[in-house]
Design a protein around this nucleic acid. Structure first.
Lengths: 339, 339
DNA sequence: TTGTAAGCGTTATCAC
DNA sequence: GTGATAACGCTTACAA
């Protein structure tokens, strides 16, 4: 087995090996029926021996788009939600023979802007973005080069773009309604700062209270906890109040875990409910809002692939907004020994 | 602001707008000092107005490598270990101005083979692989086109390649030693099937027993549980034996969570220890082996970038093997109220 | 200071 | 059946 040292062999080199032009090699590799069977055979053998691999960069350049690359820009890959979302995108991309170029912004809009620009420069066919902020102007600009963009998990602000969202509002509302139905009247809300999702969940929380004509003590609403430690401190504060809440709804699992620790520490019987299902939530006897993070990625990718297929066609469909459902699971009511 | 409809503008088009050749545009965009300041200014303005973006595909083709793309091939992105590893790679790649092309194999070696081939065809500068199996021949072939490969989390088998591993052996040994030091003499082992890491952890488990001259009842060794449900069933079996184990070491967190449920269900006081730290392990009062999954990715990327920089240089360094440390944390001994 | 020519590896087109 | 040519968008080398 003869193997070339140095960089990758070209069609010309494969051709030279067989005494044939690069063009014939190209045809043979494409199963063009006009190539003589014997020639074809010799070319394929030579290609294998040389370890030839088609240069997709050159091919893509010659052919123009599509390049077969999808960009995915997430805010925080360490968060299981986004890694599952990424997996959903990857699965669908792979099913279409496409590759995934993944970037992490760490919630930095400037970084997001640079990354998106870079992806367009690399001529990806489309981009899925979990936008880090409300300044999304660069995501509109991206469309100017006809690179379609789909937003995931957060809606477009000031731009037109497809998006795939979770039913943050409905999930939070339903979970809160469950707390009210269980007889709770003094509810607290814990959540992380700033994000759109968190605001939607709070809106759902308030909507449930409104629908039940229950009043809300605003001093029990705390939205500044990024991690479980902060949430534990704040929850402990609430529980130490003269009139502590009898139940707490948390906008995400980190806040719920912190709240759980606080409740355990104070020894109260405060009921807990939260957005995000997670391993061991049943052991903690929480009520959770569950959903399929992979479906968010898969649906975004499906939308994007559709857009890509329609590029150039006259009638571009209007921006779509897909909202994926959530389900409430009450692990407290469910059978199971106390911890 | 004039904006072109259709696909991306080229240097020629930008030049035409200003009455200048593509070459001058290229120079202006590279801050070549030979371009007249006024020309430069006009070119930059035109480029901005047209929404010009350099075609990196074409640039990369002309320049030859490097393309600035790193391939990362993992087995299961849904597993937090691999998504954190991916984050480590992404961080380091981004720090070097490189992009990450991510693929998931779902532990399918055929898929891995295709993906690696594809990545080489796209002329990525290097590839980090979490190999799905012991057939790694395709990872050796990849080197023939001078594309360096670094293995992560699992060692090379039958090929020469750099790799970055966790100290699976040492971590399991140390955690097991802790159980022995606490007086336990009847230990069980639970783990997932097949993977190299699991075998290493078992080796560590056995080594600790050997060092303490403790005997091992082979009927307490179970390595066929992929998820928490299976682990729970098997653990319940063990605990129902006439002479149940007094402590269980689990090769991963899924087995530990299953074992925890079984212990809780049976009401025994069995001590639990496992490889993998995870949220709430303290609440469950486990002993865990902790480590930094991001560091595995970052270190693999560092090695890879080093290899890439040395391509073409005569003296290629021999394959390196980096082993990252683990730490045992005993949440049972630590302060904290009982659950 | 700017332009022309050639070529990276591939493929569409036309010629033989 | 196969080859020569040109072109995709860019940049190095050489001219002007």
């Amino acid at each position: 087995m003869t193997v070339s040292r140095g960089s990758a062999p070209t069609m010309r080199q494969v051709g030279a090996q067989v005494g044939v032009s690069a063009m014939t090699v190209s045809r043979a590799l494409h199963d063009d029926p006009r190539v003589a069977p014997r020639t074809r055979e010799r070319i394929l053998t030579a290609a294998r021996e040389l370890g030839y691999r088609r240069n997709e960069l050159a091919r893509s350049l010659r052919l123009g788009r599509p390049s077969g690359m999808l960009g995915l820009v997430v805010t925080n890959l360490a968060n299981p939600f986004y890694s599952q979302l990424a997996l959903g995108v990857e699965n669908l991309a792979a099913a279409h023979g496409m590759r995934l170029v993944l970037s992490n912004t760490a919630d930095d809009v400037d970084r997001e802007r640079r990354i998106v620009h870079d992806l367009v420069s690399w001529r990806v066919d489309g981009i899925i973005v979990v936008p880090a902020g409300v300044d999304q102007s660069h995501l509109d600009l991206a469309r100017l080069n006809d690179v379609p963009v789909v937003l995931a998990a957060r809606p477009p602000v000031g731009i037109e773009a497809d998006c795939v969202l979770l039913d943050d509002f409905g999930g939070a509302r339903d979970a809160t309604s469950d707390l009210l139905a269980a007889g709770h009247r003094r509810l607290a809300f814990l959540g992380p700062p700033a994000a759109w999702t968190s605001a939607e969940r709070m809106r759902g929380f308030r909507a449930a209270l409104g629908a039940a004509n229950a009043s809300l003590d605003e001093s029990l609403v705390r939205c500044d906890q990024r991690d479980a430690e902060a949430a534990e401190r704040v929850a402990a504060e609430l529980l130490a109040m003269p009139a502590p809440p009898t139940a707490i709804f948390c906008a995400n699992s980190r806040n719920a875990i912190g709240a759980f620790r606080a409740v355990r520490g104070m020894g109260t019987d405060t009921e807990l409910s939260c957005f995000d299902d997670f391993e061991l939530a049943d052991v903690l006897r929480l009520t959770v809002v569950t959903y399929d993070p992979r479906a968010v990625g898969a649906e975004a990718a499906r939308l994007l692939v559709g857009r890509i297929a329609r590029i150039g066609h006259s009638a571009q469909a209007r921006p779509q907004r897909t909202v994926l459902p959530t389900t409430v699971i009450n692990y407290r009511q469910r059978a199971g020994a106390r911890l």
